[in-house]
Amino acid sequence: MPLKIALTKGRVERQVLPLLEAAGIDCSLLKQKNRKLIINTSDGNFQFILAKGPDVTTYLNAGAVDVGIVGSDILTEQRNQQAELLDLQVGCCQFVLASTNNFNLNQPGRKVIGTKYPLITQRYFETLGRDVEIIKIEGSVELAPLIGLADAIVDITETGSTLRENNLYVYDYLDLVSTRLVANRMSLKQHAAEIFTLVDQLAEVVQLTTDQRQNQGSGVK
């Protein structure tokens, strides 16, 4: 039986594929998937299920997959109950509080905050001792303060370019976000050897990649 891995499709998928290949996993069929959503590796050791990020945790919780690869933002927002095993250190970005240039959090009045992440947003404002109204937005969160729907937004950003292009300013930095490898707790008992072998292989690749980045940053050749 192959190890079933729910992989967040899109940007996470593209960033994780090189790590999987460097760990010795044949990803050739995954690269040539076309519109297929379930892909088996040629050696039969792994089965990749391509899914949207929020669905990865759903599959894990239901026991439909053994392992999930998904952003820590989703794990936190959905109160992950499974076993987080490895930070893959890709897909790195950060939660920010952002708004127009006339925003002032300290002005009197209850602020309205737009976000895709109501739980994370609520926890953040609780640490500030502030009571806010949270509006959940599924699409372009940046629109909320621009059209008067919200006073500010809490969202994730990688480079800040989308915020700048829409004349929004960062007022505070929240948690960092990266892609994590998570295992279903029951699968962790039933397929411990296979899962921990995968973790060890990926951990070695992540460490090597981290060392290379640090060496490049310090000018070491």
Rank of each mutant, 00 (worst) to 15 (best):
P2R: 03
P2W: 04
L3R: 15
K4L: 07
I5C: 09
A6K: 01
A6I: 02
R11L: 11
V12R: 00
R14Y: 09
R14Q: 13
Q15P: 00
Q15I: 00
V16F: 00
L19S: 06
L20W: 02
C27R: 00
L30H: 03
N34R: 12
K36W: 05
N40P: 03
S42T: 07
G44D: 03
Q47D: 09
F48K: 03
F48D: 02
I49V: 14
L50K: 01
G53R: 13
G53I: 02
G53F: 01
P54N: 09
P54S: 09
V56Y: 03
T57Q: 15
L60C: 11
A64K: 14
A64R: 15
A64N: 11
V65R: 00
D66N: 15
I74Q: 05
I74W: 10
L75A: 07
E77H: 05
N80T: 06
E84A: 13
D87H: 15
L88G: 00
V96A: 08
N101C: 11
N101I: 06
N102G: 12
F103P: 05
F103S: 07
N104I: 07
N106Y: 15
N106V: 02
Q107G: 11
Q107V: 06
Q107T: 10
R110M: 08
I113W: 02
T115V: 07
Y117V: 04
P118S: 11
L119Q: 12
L119G: 08
I120V: 09
T121C: 11
R130N: 05
V132T: 07
V132L: 08
V132D: 04
E133M: 14
I134E: 08
I134A: 12
I135D: 11
K136C: 06
S140W: 00
V141C: 08
P145W: 03
I147C: 09
I147Y: 04
L149C: 05
A150N: 03
D155C: 15
I156H: 01
N167T: 06
Y169E: 08
Y169T: 06
V170R: 10
Y173P: 04
Y173S: 13
L174N: 13
L176V: 10
V177F: 01
T179S: 06
R180V: 07
V182G: 00
V182A: 01
A183V: 04
R185Q: 05
Q190A: 07
E194N: 14
I195F: 11
F196A: 07
T197L: 13
D200A: 15
D200V: 05
E204V: 03
V205R: 04
Q207I: 08
T210P: 01
Q212K: 15
Q212I: 10
R213V: 06
R213A: 09
G217Y: 09
K221S: 12
K221F: 13
